[in-house]
Computed example of a mutant assay.
Amino acid sequence: MGYIGTLSLILIVTAVAGHISVRMGLPAVIGQLLSGIVLGPALLGWVSATPFIKDFAELGVIILMFMAGLESDLQLLKKYWKPSLLVAVLGVILPVGVIDWCSQLFHLSNVESLFLGVTFAATSVSISVAVLKELNALDGKEGTTILGAAVVDDVLAVLILSLMVSLFGGQVGTSSSQSTNLGLTLAIQAVFFVSLFVVVKWLVPLLMKIGDALLVPTSVTLMSLVICFGLAYLADFIGLSAVIGAFFAGIAVGQTDYHEVIDRHIQPIGNAVFIPVFFVSIGLNMSFNGFLNDFWFIVVITVAAIATKLLGAGIGAKIAGFSWTSGYEIGAGMVSRGEMALIIAQIGYQGKLLSADRYSAVITAIILTTLIAPLLLRQSIHHQEKEKLEGSVHDH
Rank of each mutant, 00 (worst) to 15 (best):
T145I: 12
I146C: 07
I146Q: 01
L147D: 04
L147W: 03
A149F: 09
A150V: 14
A150H: 06
V151D: 03
V152T: 05
V152Q: 04
D153F: 09
D154T: 08
D154S: 06
D154F: 02
V155N: 05
V155Y: 03
V155L: 09
A157D: 08
A157V: 02
A157T: 07
A157K: 02
V158D: 07
V158N: 10
V158L: 13
I160R: 02
L161I: 00
L161H: 03
L163S: 12
M164S: 07
V165R: 06
V165E: 06
V165T: 01
V165H: 05
S166R: 12
S166K: 08
L167Q: 09
F168K: 01
G169S: 09
G169N: 02
G169F: 01
G169D: 02
G169M: 01
G170S: 05
G173F: 06
T174R: 12
T174P: 15
S175T: 09
S175R: 08
S175Y: 10
S177Q: 14
Q178H: 12
S179M: 09
T180G: 14
T180V: 11
N181K: 05
N181M: 14
N181H: 10
L182Q: 06
L182M: 10
G183R: 00
G183N: 03
L184N: 12
L186K: 07
A187C: 13
A187P: 04
Q189P: 13
Q189M: 11
A190Y: 10
A190N: 11
A190I: 13
F192L: 07
V194H: 08
S195V: 07
L196D: 11
L196R: 11
V200Y: 06
V200I: 00
K201N: 15
K201R: 15
W202V: 00
W202P: 15
W202N: 09
